[in-house]
Design a protein around this nucleic acid. Structure first.
Lengths: 230, 230
DNA sequence: TCAAAAGTGTTTCACTTACACCCATGA
DNA sequence: TCATGGGTGTAAGTGAAACACTTTTGA
């Protein structure tokens, strides 16, 4: 057993996505305060402490650096090329997170996380280290995942009009969706429930029914062998 | 930035699957020579050296410990719970590998890797550390992957009779497959080609045509937006 | 000539796709 | 009353599932 390996450091990174109708799908970035890549934008993250799990480390770093709490988190990929950090060998375990629309709004308003900002994934700044590549992997994961797992709801508010879901999917899949067939398919899954409320109209058109995702029902369906697929 | 993190060590593990008609799907394990868990069976792996990539580390460890070369390798998951190793904090980046039937046979014959052995995933021994859990994740990945990516061919010989593919899928998915519909579906994908040869009959029944997977054709199909799915 | 395993044709059924129309609201 | 966006019915097309039959081999 070699002892050289102890020079390698372990960090976690968090690629957090949010969504709003105005900006589409956005990712949370922070501006670096120190060299290298001082002032560049980067994915939030930091070193893992000796007695915390990887997931705890991600949540802690996110809270410290951006004040945000995710409501969905999963491991994405581990990046470990020898030269990815110019200073020393660092292995980054990247995580993939989603926040609800309410959290998205909060960060925009908050002043204490002044160096954290949402960027539309269509207008990304230059990123530090290999973070562009990492973000790319995360975006692909999001696009793939949204097709076979109901993660879209994690990006919307608890209650949402059906058209919001449709807009989200249009933004993520980057293609037109037939409204009729989309609603038929999603509703046939039988894990969305009407809240009874109507959206307060924001301008023109008929107000829409509000829906919410029934997590419990979804879990039941999974047990019965149900498979989500768009 | 804390410096405690440097105490964490980085290892790679390799969960390698093989297949034979007799034993079904098997996984490659090694018997530990030292404490802790001396003489227990474990997933092959070891520490990452300072100037090699994670993937290089996996291949090196596999060669050293078992003499095997995989022909498919992808990152599986990173396990980093603080107490997973009783001695110290070790983060394990687990990889998932597949070997062709020929490699499978070779290990069985070889004497120099005397502490490496294939175990049918239906008859697993007690494993060291959290390796049981890691293996479980790998098996789930294999089962899921075989449904949406043509990885099954990586477990068979270059040329194989169609029925071998069917048997492999039956073993992996653990349910009966309708021969007619299965062959219709796979052949309609148009990435299998007949070699013209016939299987030398092993006993009764009609000899079958031999097929081989056309990787190039598959790549082309992918570009055209093709999506494999069983 | 019989059993075993490979190879194939066709109907049925369900689901997706496409299209057209109606409803509720604000201006 | 008209423009806008939400909500729904249904016919046509496509592909999966089920089933039955033929072919080729060894014993």
């Amino acid at each position: 057993m070699q002892n050289k390996s102890s020079v390698i450091k372990v960090a976690v990174d968090a690629i957090v996505f949010g969504y709003s109708k105005q900006d589409g799908v956005s990712v949370l970035l922070i501006q670096r305060k120190y060299e290298p890549y001082k002032n560049s934008w980067a994915i939030p993250g930091g070193f893992v402490l000796e007695d915390e799990s990887l997931e705890e480390a991600v949540k802690r770093e996110l809270a410290e650096e951006t004040g945000i709490t995710v409501n969905y988190l999963e491991q994405l990929y581990t990046f470990g090329e020898p030269k990815r950090d110019p200073r020393q060998r660092i292995i980054a375990v990247a995580y993939f997170g989603l926040v609800k629309a309410s959290q998205y709004q909060e960060l925009k308003a908050s002043t204490d996380a002044e160096n954290a900002k949402w960027f539309s994934i269509k207008k990304l700044p230059t990123l530090a280290f290999d973070h562009k590549q990492i973000l790319q992997v995360a975006i692909e994961r999001l696009r793939a995942k949204v097709r076979y797992q109901p993660v879209g709801f994690e990006l919307l508010d608890k209650k949402f009009p059906f058209s919001d879901l449709e807009k989200l999917y249009t933004a993520l899949l980057d293609k037109e969706i037939n409204r009729r067939n989309f609603s038929k398919k999603i509703l046939s899954f039988d894990f969305l429930e009407e809240t009874g409320e109507l959206s307060k109209s924001e301008g023109k058109g008929r107000p829409s029914k509000m829906y919410q995702f029934n997590q419990k029902r979804y879990k039941e369906l999974l047990k019965e062998g149900f498979h989500f697929e768009i």
